[in-house]
Design a binder for these strands. Structure first.
Lengths: 249, 249
DNA sequence: CGATAGTTTGATATCCTTCAAAACCTGTGG
DNA sequence: CCACAGGTTTTGAAGGATATCAAACTATCG
């Protein structure tokens, strides 16, 4: 967690070289504090700069006309929150902070220049947007085909692995700063029912809650409870064998 | 529909230059016929080549251990079916054909070389994966927050617009080769309930079915019925004003 | 014409929502 | 240190949307 979280994340895909690292570190300054609840991208915005999340939790969501909100993704340190909005030139959903956070704003021009001159970095950024897409697809499966208990449990498995990769877990537990209402908008249920499902998970000894922390007594048991398949998170270092070796280095 | 569908699609984002076009056209040969039901990517595969869909319908899906299937996306002409699987080096879901189809296989090496040498084309491909991500996110909203009737109606709005962009609609109608069972796996309902929702849409004069075609008597009415917001499909040509102009051309 | 897949309808079961209220926290001011 | 206010969590009871089960009907194709 001392390393720049974007470096940690992209390093999972390519061996970044000195100049790539320098670029990323330059992007990460100056660090800016944002308060819980700050919306920094609203649907329809045409962002001029890209927000890199360095610390704290954010989320993407859409609000329907009837006021219902669906959370599309949780944003964790290392995530470039609105890269897609910049590339597509127009945001199709809102992004806001769930906790106090620190971010850095990178000018879009800088990123696009880097894209044109650093193919290795470009591929790494592209890769990271594809991982996000994979997460979105698994979210579809979760909402479409899993029962309430499993839906909630699946989300905790995902968060566990993403946070662990960032070094933000310790001893089978992590900081979980979200209210049950926020959770309910992520798993598409009522807060009341989320509450009951959490109780069930507690009673099955799959999860424990203290202060604002979740503990997972036995990660393996939780994962087998939901039949969790982590491959969509692309956590294993890319395999270097095969045709691609010459493209890296 | 005479133009190469990938050119049509990417042309929506950048003005492709002669060499980009040449490359894409070269990718599109030789054209290969695939029969309905062919699976060409299974979860865990590490594809060496990328499949470009030229004609017909495909779909992405995941199958859970209990046998339930969730369709993640429909693939239409111009879609590079497994680009992400190639970039990520491992497929996290299956891809198969819903109709007879014609495709072209591009070697991954060729694509990656193009990526390193044609920044404009790279950005266009990246853009197209981001549009797919936007579609996936809207799918999340659809499954999470819309009632059955609206869920089905929303899907037809999306298909209408995507097909129209490709010139595959005529006169308020299009070829819809899917069974209600396939549809039910896309909208996460039982086939029985899909059937009832289709009846309701028919009774409301929002949709009509003949042979294997759907007709939408009044697209505007269908869209306002679901409160459909097309912005996630990124159909408007990218706005050329602002900081970005120098990056294009 | 029969076989097979897809569509349609009905009756009953269930998961989740909705509505309502109590209990519990957390911070704040007196 | 207590009282109080606002948000969050928890519990209960009843209703509704969708699933499940079962079967008839229809279309298509050899």
């Amino acid at each position: 967690m001392n390393e720049n979280p974007l470096v940690t994340k992209l390093g999972n895909f390519v061996d970044l070289q000195a100049d790539d690292l320098q670029l990323i570190r330059a992007w990460s300054l100056p660090a800016i504090r944002l308060a819980t609840g700050t919306t920094f991208i609203a649907e329809g915005d045409r962002p001029e700069r890209i927000c890199l999340l360095l610390e704290g939790w954010g989320y993407r969501y859409k609000t329907l006309r009837d006021g219902n909100r669906q959370i599309l993704a949780f944003l964790l340190p290392g995530d470039m929150c609105d890269l897609h909005a910049f590339i597509l030139s127009k945001a199709d959903h809102d992004i806001a902070m769930l906790t106090d956070a620190t971010v850095a704003f990178v000018s879009g021009k800088d990123v696009m220049q880097a894209v044109d001159s650093h193919p290795r970095l470009t591929r790494a950024l592209w890769w990271s947007t594809l991982v996000d897409e994979g997460i979105a697809r698994e979210w579809i499966v979760n909402l479409g085909r899993r029962r309430a208990v499993h839906r909630v449990a699946h989300l905790f498995c995902e968060l566990w692995l993403r946070l662990r990769m960032l070094g933000m877990t310790s001893d089978g537990e992590f900081l979980f700063p979200l209210s049950q209402e926020v959770l309910s908008d992520a798993v598409a249920m009522t807060p009341v029912h989320v509450n009951r499902m959490l109780r069930e998970l507690r009673e099955r000894n799959l999860l424990e809650f203290r202060d604002k922390h979740v503990a997972i007594p036995d990660v393996g048991r939780l994962m087998s409870f939901v039949d969790f398949d982590p491959s969509y998170l692309q956590l294993e270092r890319r395999d270097l064998s095969g045709d691609l070796r010459h493209l890296r280095s």
